[in-house]
Design a protein around this nucleic acid. Structure first.
Length: 644
RNA sequence: GCUCGCAUAGCUCAGGCGGUAGAGCACUCCCUUGGUAAGGGAGAGGUCCCCGGUUCAAUUCCGGGUGUGAGCACCA
């Protein structure tokens, strides 16, 4: 006699065991139709799931996040079924839900083409019309293996065989298609209203590059056509913000074949770069970092000593000169230890915070490069803190204060914290790792913010915290990091004299707030859609004359604004004002200063913001004051974080 | 690094089943001096990514390379 409690607290009694579908039907016809799955005492189940005793039950529809997930998962099955109808020789492997969609990996004799994708999507439509029931069945491991062996699905057999334990396994059947799956799934193929296959690409079986490359088809599915369109619009918006596109159209930087993965910075892009770097310099000066600079070319033996050559030789550029092998530095830390090693250090010198904006080169795999986001030549706001074990926690806490404050200045309020702990391949004793991980955990807990544990992802020399920020598109971008290193200082002979007159090896903390400038600027460009806030804008204002008559005055205004330290230019071309407004608006210059006879007469400029807002005429002094305030806000104001 | 796609004027892109190519914008010159998102006219501009092969002939077809895009793998 099941007694069912619904989410609103109401209860319903049934005489016999009842399915989720029946519960939904008892509430209303519309709900019965909309039901995609159910939740019984917190567990997601199929609508065919039968409830026999007292339970809390919720009907899951496309309005629930879980409903959309079920829909996407089922859509992956729908796609697999369509693929096997069209390409009977294709073998199925796995097809999980991912953010905003799903994919399914197939093994097939040839790669799928974009035309195949269209055909598959069409076939999926046919399957929807066929309204096939989706049934859950349970098979024993032996029966399941026999079934898929018979079908020639060798990958599925491998998956089934590798599932630990010996309980029965659940399968979902729709028409002639059957797949191993935990479920739940939608009750029928008619439930799909809005889906689209988005791309096809290779992907390694089990994510291992030694294995066969499978054909991965990506798709997306939504509860309604409207949601699907909103999603597609979001993709378009992201494409418009692509920093590679904006870098070209705003004339910030370029790449060319002769220097793959290395940016050529143009005046406007370099201005942004310099502003960001000078800002970090000021912030680090104020927090007791000593800025240094070390060579870009260092004898290979140093990298062998540090342990980097053993692990990253293939990713390092090297140069032979005069029978010596040098590496172009892929990182600054071994050089920082050389600076530390000059002169005998006392515990009184610790913590010692060294910082460097050092140009580093890494031979990144060709397929991994992506505009400014992943390059072979980059500069980090790099720093290394030499300290004692007792100082780690305080140093981490200090660093985080700096980091949060910097991110806020750049307009990022959402920071995601992750702690990566000891990997399998590592150096140092477990006791040392225990302590290092504890220091980082304590520092994280002290922030009061939520953080995520990522076991096994630490560096070989120590655990690390990674700081990611959310951009205005909701994308998560990893930027900052702090890593504890008990290993490298010792390998490179760093030591200090402790209070008890013994020689001790310092702990080194590797840390960066922004990460690489290249990447961070890429993130800024996309976050602001190229419309940089006034403090970062390479050109803060441009003065536009209406006719030749005002040229002289415009030049004078330019001079006086430049003297106040603003980045200002003029456009005195023989063009109509509308044309100039359009051009410089597209160049996303924050302020357009229009000058006609009226302005000359009154000693003013007519101020127009790049979003189109007309601030009317202002005296030069008033405009300076206005711009100063805007610049002083950095990225903090609501107004300037919204791309206009 | 792997799979698949792409590479044509400064930019964005057409095009050609093999006979050395075209638009819009930008650029130069001329007219126009016009008050808040494109005024008009004329002109100049190309090793069709590179190296081989097939062919009377290759920008086009084939092979290799480089770069680049999506995804995978990698990321000190």
């Amino acid at each position: 006699m099941p007694q069912i409690t619904l989410p609103d607290g109401s209860t319903r009694s049934f005489d016999n065991a009842v399915t989720i579908a029946e519960v939904a039907a008892s509430i209303g016809e519309g709900l019965a139709k909309a039901a995609l799955a159910g939740r019984v005492n917190g567990v997601l189940v199929d609508t065919s799931h039968s409830v026999e005793i007292e339970a809390e039950v919720a009907i899951i529809t496309e309005r629930d996040a879980e409903g959309i997930e079920v829909l996407r998962h089922s859509c992956a099955h729908l796609m697999a079924q369509a693929v096997q109808r069209l390409f009977p020789k294709a073998q199925v492997t796995i097809g999980p839900v991912i953010e905003d969609g799903f994919f399914y990996d197939f093994s097939y004799e040839r790669p799928f083409t974009p035309e195949d994708l269209i055909a598959i999507e069409k076939e999926m439509g046919v399957l929807v019309k066929e309204n096939l029931r989706v049934d859950r069945t349970v098979l024993s491991r032996e029966d399941a293996i026999a079934l898929f062996q018979e079908k020639g699905e060798t990958y599925k057999v491998e998956i089934i065989s590798s599932i630990p334990g010996d309980e029965d396994l659940s399968f979902y059947r729709q028409g002639d298609f059957i797949d191993l799956c935990r479920g739940p799934h939608v009750p029928s193929t008619s439930k799909f209203k809005a889906f689209k296959l988005t791309s096809v690409a290779g992907a390694y079986w089990r994510g291992d590059s030694n294995n066969e490359m499978l054909q991965r088809v990506y798709g997306t599915a939504w509860g309604s056509k409207k949601d699907l369109n909103l999603y597609l619009q979001r993709l378009e918006e992201a494409e418009k913000r692509d920093h590679r596109k904006l870098g070209k159209s705003l004339n910030l930087f370029h790449f060319q074949e002769e220097a793959p993965g290395m940016a050529f910075w143009h005046p406007k892009g370099w201005t942004i770069y310099q502003i960001v770097q000078r800002y970090m310099q000021v912030r680090q000066d104020a927090t007791n970092y000593k800025e240094i600079n070390t060579p870009q070319l260092v004898d290979y033996s140093l990298w062998e000593k540090s342990g980097h050559a053993a692990k990253f030789a293939d990713e390092m550029f090297s140069v032979e000169s005069d029978n010596r092998m040098y590496a172009i530095k892929p990182m600054n830390c071994p050089c920082h230890i050389q600076v530390f090693n000059q002169g005998l250090k006392s515990y009184r010198d610790l913590p010692l915070r060294l910082a460097e904006f050092g140009s580093c080169h890494r031979y990144e795999p060709s397929g991994s490069m992506h505009g400014l986001m992943r390059v072979r030549s980059f500069v980090q706001d790099d720093g290394h803190i030499f300290c004692t074990e007792d100082q780690i926690q305080a140093e981490v806490a200090d660093f985080m204060d700096l980091l949060f404050s910097v991110y806020t200045d750049f307009g990022f309020d959402d920071v995601i914290l992750r702690l990566s702990t000891r990997p399998e391949k590592r150096v140092g004793s477990d006791e040392i790792w225990d302590e290092a991980e504890k220091s980082l955990k304590d520092a994280l807990n002290a922030t009061g913010l939520p953080w995520e544990l990522v076991p096994g992802e630490g560096a070989f020399y120590g655990p690390k915290i990674e700081y990611s920020l959310k951009d205005c598109m909701g994308r998560i971008q990893q930027c900052g990091t702090i890593q504890v290193d008990f290993f490298t200082p010792g390998r490179l002979g760093a030591h200090y004299i402790a209070e008890d007159n013994s020689r001790k090896t310092p702990v080194m903390l590797h840390r960066a707030v922004l990460g690489s400038f290249e990447r961070f600027i890429g993130i800024l460009i996309e976050h602001y859609a190229g419309a940089m806030p006034a403090w970062l804008a390479p050109e803060q204002a441009i003065i536009l004359n209406i006719t030749d008559k005002q040229s002289q005055y415009c030049t004078e205004v330019e001079e006086s604004l430049k003297n106040k330290g603003f980045r200002v230019t003029t456009d005195l071309r023989n063009e109509k004002i509308g044309f100039k407004i359009r051009e410089h608006t597209l160049q996303k210059i924050p302020y357009l200063l229009v000058v006609g006879d009226k302005e000359v007469e009154s000693g003013s400029v007519a101020v127009r913001k790049r979003g189109g807002e007309d601030l009317g005429p202002m005296t030069i002094d008033d405009f300076c004051e206005y711009l100063s305030q805007d610049v002083a806000r950095l990225g903090r104001s609501e107004e300037s974080t919204v791309a206009d």
